[in-house]
Design a protein around this nucleic acid. Structure first.
Lengths: 193, 193
DNA sequence: ACCTGAACACCGTTCAAGT
DNA sequence: ACCTGAACACCGTTCAAGT
């Protein structure tokens, strides 16, 4: 019953693995087919071209990321922390760690580069990011008065930090503290703005 | 005398052009050679492989970016604006505009994806970013008390904004205002921290 | 030092053909 | 519906050879 799903799942798993190991540039249909133990033509039956394969793999990857974050969130009992300070400290630690995790950082760079070449892929990725922003906004809402603003600060920042974080004049710890100060000081005023 | 330099300059110019038009994935040595009106083998004489060509093209591109920012800075008479508020307003406008300029955003995505595949390229790019951070720090120093912190905020943020800016729940104008508030409120306290 | 073309093993995609 | 191999035009790189 789920045999077809399993096969496709396996293909996508292999694709993501190769994508993070060798990059989109070096990923080949033949390589994916070989690593999946199927023929090139068979792979092309499921994904008629490289773009279709990449699109499906990226979709799979994004949903995997959301699940991973959810899981770690529950694990660290983030929801229960009612105090705003502790909540954001944990969240930043989690998101920044996530951003620097080698595989993930590489994947996002590959994905964003691929999307800049491909309108279709870009739209799909934009949709995933919008989902992510909405999800993060609701996660933050109970702990802050301006969750949209905080999301607008954090999402681009973390995205950029994954790329240039290592060259900044401040350490990661100092950066986290700075972000916390910003969230506390500017974006979460006790009185209305 | 400068004939060799001219030829190399032309090759790099053509490479950057093709890179931004077709992406690193679709850039070919043969394509660059053809567009440069030289033979493939001749191109390989100057750049023995694709990596060497890309590395040189990216170096050329980065220095071009610095020059462009400098030029626009002088043009907008940014240095003379002694008032901190006006200075940062102009700077953010300039940097955010720069970041969303289609060609540049695409180039940076290509570059960062290429660098994640190539340790050599990554080191070169890190060096350019460090330069950029140092340069921006000194530019900001006369107008703020914690220039390093502001750079640590702005550089990753602008980098990330180029990728995900369009999916955020706030408009670009609101984002600029938020950044200005942060700079004024948290990072540039009148009294010592 | 500068430039050339032929040849190598690879690639994505197409296609006609099998079950 | 699922799977196959041959063939197409392309690619990066190597190499022996010319000026």
């Amino acid at each position: 019953m789920t045999k077809k799903g399993d096969k496709i799942g396996h293909i996508l798993h292999v694709t993501i693995d190769l994508l993070s190991k060798e990059g989109g540039e070096n990923l080949s249909m033949r390589g994916v087919a070989k690593a999946s133990n199927i023929s090139l033509s068979n792979l092309q039956y499921y994904y008629p071209n490289k773009e279709a394969l990449l699109k499906a793999a990226i979709a799979q990857y994004f949903s995997g990321c959301q699940e991973a974050i959810m899981a770690r969130m529950e694990q660290s009992a983030l929801d229960q922390a009612s105090s705003g300070s502790i909540f954001f400290e944990q969240l930043l630690d989690l998101l920044l760690y996530n951003a620097k995790e080698s595989d993930q950082a590489i994947m996002f760079r590959e994905i964003s580069a691929l999307s800049s070449r491909n309108k279709d892929l870009e739209l799909a990725i934009d949709a995933y990011y919008k989902d992510y922003c909405a999800w993060l906004t609701e996660l933050i809402r109970p702990h802050a008065q301006l969750p949209e603003k905080i999301v607008c600060l954090l999402v681009p920042y973390l995205e950029g930090y994954a790329g240039v974080g290592t060259v900044l004049p401040l350490s990661k710890k100092e950066v986290v503290q700075m972000l916390l100060d910003i969230i506390k000081g500017t974006l979460n005023p006790l009185c209305s703005e």
